[in-house]
């Protein structure tokens, strides 16, 4: 399933991976700072590697909670991880915020999970419990423009998820 048209994601192929990864790490750190207990619920699964593969973006993301790092690679290279989740990018982001129900997306076949199911279930529950709000958490990176950035991120999210419980909370 694709929510983002290929025309919009194609330019990502021209952006150096190191730049994309640096931006992602900045955002990941920002979320970690805002939610220090984010991975507490993972328990024994904290040392696992979790891959998130957006079906509509030519990139793969691997999160390692133990070292609190995120790495980015092109879809053309293989990803090594204990558990892998695939879904359109905005659905993955909505899951991060607990804005969509993972089971419902699984039933509708919009989301698939392979590998260590116990680890990924723990990750799902940890994220769902964390009250992440990307529009608030990431807007702070914009400094004095935070309120405006928050509104823009929120609007993009709502448009992308229209019909997918976007109005929730």
């Amino acid at each position: 399933m694709q929510l983002i048209p290929p025309l919009l994601t194609r330019p990502l192929n021209a952006v150096p991976l190191v730049v994309i990864e640096r931006i992602c790490r900045l955002m990941f750190r920002r979320i970690g700072t805002a939610h220090p207990g984010l991975f507490e619920r993972l328990g024994e699964h904290r040392t696992k590697r979790f891959a998130f593969l957006p079906t509509d973006v030519p990139l793969s993301f691997v999160v390692e909670p133990a070292s609190e790092t995120i790495s980015v690679s092109r879809k053309t290279s293989d990803v090594t991880a204990d558990a892998v989740t695939e879904a359109p990018l905005f659905m993955l982001l909505a899951l991060m915020e607990g804005r969509c129900d993972a089971d419902a997306l699984f039933f509708s076949r919009d989301l698939s999970v392979t590998g260590d199911m116990e680890a990924m279930l723990a990750m799902r529950n940890a994220l769902d419990a964390s009250n992440i709000d990307l529009s608030k958490d990431l807007a702070r990176l914009a400094g004095p423009f935070a309120p405006m950035a928050g509104r823009v991120i929120g609007e993009i999210r709502n448009r992308a998820l229209r019909g997918e419980a976007a109005s929730w909370n």
Partner: peptide, 10 residues
């Protein structure tokens, strides 16, 4: 109880 908060809310 095993479902996400979006499910519970809705």
């Amino acid at each position: 109880r095993q479902r996400g908060k979006a499910y519970v809310a809705e």
